[in-house]
């Protein structure tokens, strides 16, 4: 789908910190999923082999907690960066380049569905972040908080049951498991397929690793953003313009 003979003018889409955090979170999340499901399905044959390899039930718990802290530290760093961006760099967290969900996302979603069913000739005009990208982001960001809290309930049950009823620990166990199941399905299947196998980006959308998008990619995938960039040179996406 990529035409290399087009003008290769690139723009920065993700900063180094965002790229780094994405890689670290991907590692942490995969580790959490492996160790977590190894805990949940400990009787399955292959898990017993894995469990032996990772140092038994205790080893798996320690690893799971390590990955949990590791991943959450990434979330905290991201949160700190948001403050830095807003307060020191005087950046804007709202507007067309924002991650915040808005009414237009619902509209583009409906238009997109209409496009899928051939009720519309062209795909809708996505902004810097399309609705599914926002979903990916917020699913993880909110999910980390809830998984974190239920996880802490199980890590320090004595502390939490000193002021909460004991069945909160059982609830936490249940919710932690089902949310983990959901998160793994969303991240490992939906997210991975959307960024690789979707015809628009096939074989893969590598912008989260290179940090760069070409002009053509912006125009094709985020026409709304390109409009905004053309309308004013202070568009949120224009951090650094390079030609390679």
């Amino acid at each position: 789908m990529r035409r290399q003979n087009l003008e290769q003018e690139t723009y920065q889409r993700f900063s180094v910190l965002q790229r780094l955090l994405h890689i670290l979170i991907a590692i942490g999340f995969t580790g959490l999923a492996i160790t977590g499901f190894a805990r949940a399905f400990s009787s399955v044959g292959i898990v017993r082999a894995l469990s032996w390899f990772l140092g038994g039930a205790d080893g798996i718990v320690s690893l799971h907690r390590f990955f949990a802290v590791f991943t959450y530290v990434c979330v905290v760093v991201h949160g700190l960066w948001l403050f830095y961006f807003k307060i020191i760099l005087k950046g804007s967290l709202t507007g067309r380049g924002s991650m915040l969900p808005c009414k237009k996302d619902l509209e583009t979603f409906l238009e997109h569905v209409r496009y899928f069913f051939a009720q519309r000739k062209e795909p809708p005009s996505f902004d810097r972040f399309a609705y599914w990208e926002k979903m990916d982001y917020w699913a993880f960001f909110i999910g980390m908080q809830t998984m974190g809290i239920t996880g802490l309930f199980m890590w320090f049950p004595e502390f939490f049951s000193s002021f909460l009823p004991g069945y909160f620990i059982n609830l936490a166990q249940l919710l932690h498991f089902y949310e983990a199941l959901m998160a793994v399905i969303v991240k490992m299947f939906i997210h991975t397929i959307v960024v690789t196998l979707r015809p628009e980006v096939y074989p893969a959308d590598l912008s989260i690793f290179t940090g760069k998008v070409t002009k053509e990619e912006i125009i094709r995938h985020h026409p709304g953003e390109w409009e905004a960039m053309s309308a004013s040179t202070e568009g949120a996406a224009v951090v650094k313009k390079e030609t390679t």
């Binding site: 900063s15 180094v16 790229r19 780094l20 020191i88 760099l89 690793f209």
Partner: peptide, 16 residues
């Protein structure tokens, strides 16, 4: 910030 951003971009491009 600019220095950090350019520096980190450079490190990233070298590492990969």
């Amino acid at each position: 910030h600019k220095k950090l951003s350019l520096g980190s971009e450079l490190v990233w491009s070298k590492v990969f």
